[in-house]
Write a protein that binds this DNA or RNA. Structure first.
Length: 846
RNA sequence: GCUCGGGUGGCGAAAUUGGCAGACGCGCCAGACUUAGGAUCUGGUUCCGAAAGGAGUAGGAGUUCGAGUCUCCUCCCGAGCACCA
């Protein structure tokens, strides 16, 4: 822009190299069986979370993760790995469809245009993707297999005996439809009127839709569900073997929400049935003084006494009209009404009143609780509100007087008296089990995955309905492609847009197609598999390709490194693990987990330290940075900002800083002649390093190599800066420094490294050089400087020979004038010597 | 409220197993070369102090010859969950 004279001609060579890499297919990975495949090379599968090609284009936040993986992909290639580094498009789903509706164009057209834009932006960054493997989730040849995998789920059930998914043919019950991993259920779901679709629990944030932030209401609807709850335990256990951030593991763990407790059956007085409750504190059963049902509990109408009916129904109505947000507002007072019914506490046959209250949720446990107001805050609050009895049954170690929900010793509890909580739990569970009144059990927060959406732009289900029953269509009919429609907008009712395509819906005279579509997550649940073998027309992934790329050398996962944002912790990352486990159980895959190692890049904030957003006007686009400073500077800056995982603000001055560094590297090898053209520098000479130069160079090789292994890109770059600063004023300058530095730099700044490599007349490509290896012997110095402390404070520095003994070091340290001064009049009581590190003299006043 | 992360110069940040706090970069100050500098190069730059010296990693205690790093308490910021029985 304002820079008339560029510090180095990046705009001239960057696009040239990008074109060259594409024309040459420079970063194509070979599969087993391909010509040129080398089985001796180890594989490295490094994957980015592929983007939704939204209309806004790529964002500097995307660029951070993509740059990190690109650097590692290039690094591993130079280290001799066969690297799979693919890119594609997660193009189905709400963002793409909403963009299409906004612009009034068919999503296929807007998606294609957005993809083109994203692709161009990625190419302008010089990323070394294997473009031959590119695909979008909206390609019929891709979603043919998404639909095929759905059929695998449809045709499978979870066998609790084997703890595995199995073909539905091994199911021996009389209603296979009730056991399928993909099933239809009528249930209260999250309906978002604004988006015109239902949403999964995972897509609701604070009672609003994750996309758009629109209000969501509960209404009963018939929907497709996936039985992810059957895998709750394995999804939880599987986390242990994964090299993922603890925070993400914890998020998944909390989302799955395992809790141990007991089911207890409460007989309802004057009725023939019992109502089970789930409790984590069966030891407090003697303290259960009332029972609470969720207002939506199906037995409420039956048990409600006539004289309470109007109050109960009124309360139910009031609760139903509340949004989730209002209902879960913790600040509000507890509300509820008495049903007139009583339950019998099984442990002492006491009748206890049955209430309904909205603090009991239908979606967790059994939708009913035993209330122990003495030892549960919520029950206590409720009991106080309505004057219900409170009975202490756990004695706390140090009485506080308030509601005590911790562990203690059982009291007022008959045969449990005197038992510590843990033992009391065991004793009561055994007691209940013996009498068939209950049993120890495990409960999960995780709900089954609501899998259908009332949208146009998604994968149609490969299912038809006939006579009120669903059945799968045959695999030969895949893919099921959406009909061409001019009006693909949501209908505003739960009726999906596809239902408007009458001809398409009519499958046969009697059978109609399912008109719901799959959610966005469907396509991203398995794309990492398709990248291994994207062209395969016969299988979703070839067995050879799967074995090779998803091999895991003793670890559960196949993708060696997966990089993306935290926002998918309980969505994509949980769903993909679920599908993967099903396909593993059914024998289609050889690893139990999809992603061995996961790294989250931190968010990049605007220059004002705020989250980037159009409304704040603080958005930095990659395009503008590339135009002014070049792709290499953008890449380098994103890595130099700080640790990958950390949240950090953008600074244009910081971009200038790394740009200056690249200019210094450029001038290590290049100079401008009279005509203003860049030519090879006259200062370069074929001379050996001085020992100081050799030390810096080899220190740099060592540090860059180890920092890359630990993803410490920022410190790797600082070390290359140190190295460059060492040479920038050396005249003559040993040309070998560039033979080493350019390969080290090439993963970070590939265009500049390649351009200099070729201008200097070096052979081959910088990016194809073997990774430099450092010589440890060049790092050692003969003497080293160490600090001398007196009572822990640094008083002097001394030079000692490397390998000096403790005695030698101590002698030098004691003789030091500053030390003598500091210890004058004192007695030296102790001397600590850490050889090669420091000396500490402990002195005391005499 | 609960559960995780974090608090280091004017700013982004470095700092093997506890062993020279502030590498590298930004910014700032001074100088050089220049018609010019928002180019480039050189030197300086944690704070207080003229210096000697002292203080210093959110605050307070503790362990240790020695603590940014380990332990306990308090405060602040960020993220997640949120009546989960």
């Amino acid at each position: 822009m304002s820079t008339q004279r560029k510090q180095f001609p990046f705009s001239e060579f960057e696009s040239r190299w990008q074109q060259h890499w594409i024309d040459a297919g420079a970063f194509h990975a070979t599969n087993p069986g391909d010509p040129g495949f080398d089985p001796a090379r180890p594989k490295y599968y490094i994957l980015d979370m592929f983007p939704y090609p939204s209309g806004d284009g790529l964002h500097v936040g995307h660029v951070e993760g993509y740059t990190a993986t690109d650097i590692l992909a290039r690094f591993h290639r130079m280290r001799g790995f066969n690297v799979l580094h693919p890119m594609g498009w997660d193009a189905f789903g709400l963002p793409a469809e909403q963009f299409a509706i906004k612009t009034g164009q068919h999503p296929r057209i807007t998606t294609a245009r957005n993809v083109e834009k994203f692709r161009a932006q990625l190419r302008a960054l010089g990323f070394s993707y294997d473009w031959a493997r590119e695909f979008g989730t909206t390609d019929p040849e891709y979603f043919r297999w998404t639909q095929w995998i759905f059929l695998q789920l449809y045709n499978a059930w979870f066998n609790p005996g084997t703890n595995k998914a199995e073909p539905i043919s091994t199911f021996t019950g009389d209603d296979p439809d009730s056991a399928r991993l993909a099933y239809v259920a009528e249930m209260p779901v999250n309906w978002c009127p604004e988006l015109g679709t239902v949403l999964a629990n995972e897509e609701i944030v604070d009672g609003k839709s994750e996309v758009g932030g629109f209000p969501v209401e509960r209404r009963p609807m018939r929907q497709w569900m996936l039985r992810i709850t059957a895998f709750a335990e394995r999804l939880l256990d599987g986390l242990d073997g994964l090299d993922w951030p603890d925070s993400i593991k914890l998020l998944q763990k909390n989302w799955i929400g395992r809790s141990e407790g007991a089911l207890v059956q409460f007989q309802i007085s004057n009725f023939k049935f019992q109502i089970p409750v789930f409790t984590t504190r069966p030891d407090t059963l003697f303290g259960a003084t009332y029972m609470v049902l969720s207002p939506e509990h199906p037995l409420v109408p039956q048990i409600t006494a006539p004289e309470h009916r109007s109050a109960v129904e009124e309360y139910q109505k009031k609760v139903a009209s509340k949004s989730d947000l209002e209902r879960t507002d913790l600040a509000k007072e507890k509300t509820g009404v008495f049903t007139g019914a009583h339950a019998v506490n099984p442990v002492n046959n006491e009748p206890i009143p049955v209430w309904i209250a909205d603090y009991v949720l239908m979606g967790y446990g059994t939708g009913a609780i035993m209330a122990v107001p003495a030892h549960d805050e919520r029950d206590f609050e409720f009991a106080r509100q309505f004057g219900l009895p409170v009975r202490e049954v756990v004695r706390e170690p140090h009485a506080t007087g308030s509601c005590f929900s911790g562990e203690g010793v059982a009291v007022n509890s008959g045969f449990l008296d005197g038992l510590p909580t843990a033992e009391a739990k065991r004793a009561i569970s055994a007691w209940l089990e013996e009498r068939q009144l209950g049993r120890a059990t495990v409960n999960y927060k995780l709900r089954d995955w609501l899998f259908s959406r009332q949208r146009y732009w998604g994968e149609p289900f490969p299912v038809v309905w006939e006579g009120g029953r669903h059945r799968a269509i045959s695999e030969e009919e895949l893919p099921v492609v959406q009909p061409e429609m001019d009006d693909f907008k949501p209908t505003g009712t739960p009726e999906p847009p596809l239902s408007k395509a009458r001809e398409w819906v009519q499958y046969t005279e009697k059978a109609e197609r399912e008109t719901n579509t799959m959610p966005q997550w469907a396509g991203s649940c398995w794309y990492y598999l398709r990248f291994c073998d994207p062209e395969n027309p016969l299988r979703f992934i070839g067995t050879g390709a799967e074995k090779y790329w998803m091999a895991s050398a003793g670890t559960p996962g196949g993708v060696d490194l997966y990089v993306g944002g935290t926002e998918h912790a309980v969505l994509h990352l949980l769903y993909a693990r679920f599908w993967h486990k099903v396909m593993f159980d059914l024998g289609h895959l050889t690893t139990p987990e999809p992603f061995q190692r996961l790294v989250n890049q931190g968010m990049i904030l605007g220059p004002d330290g705020q989250k980037m957003s159009k409304s704040r006007g603080n958005v930095v686009t990659p395009d503008s940075v590339i135009a002014e400073y070049g792709a290499d500077s953008l890449r380098l800056y994103e890595m130099f900002m700080g640790p990958l995982e950390q949240m950090k603000p953008w600074s244009m001055k910081g971009v200038e800083g790394v740009h200056r560094f690249l200019a210094r590297v450029w001038r290590l090898g290049m100079q401008e002649n009279q005509e203003g053209e860049w030519v090879v520098s006259e200062d370069l000479a074929d001379i050996p390093f001085t020992s100081a130069q050799a030390r810096v160079v080899h220190e740099t090789i060592k540090k860059v190599t180890s920092d890359l292994a630990s993803l410490a890109f920022n410190t790797a770059i600082s070390q290359m800066m140190v190295c460059t600063n060492e040479f920038v004023n050396a005249k003559p300058r040993p040309v070998q420094v560039l033979r080493i530095l350019l390969p080290l730099l090439s993963p970070f700044a590939p265009h500049l490294a390649e351009e200099m490599w070729s201008r200097l007349g070096f052979r081959g490509a910088a990016s194809a050089q073997p990774w430099p290896v450092h010589d440890e012997s060049l790092l050692v110095e003969s003497e080293t400087e160490i600090p001398v402390q007196v009572n822990g404070k640094v008083r002097a520095r001394i030079r000692v020979a490397v390998g000096a003994t403790k005695e030698e070091t101590e002698a030098i340290a004691r003789a030091c004038p500053k030390v003598l001064e500091a210890t004058a009049g004192q007695t030296i009581v102790k001397v600590i010597i850490v050889p090669g590190k420091l000396a500490n003299i402990v002195a005391k006043s005499a």
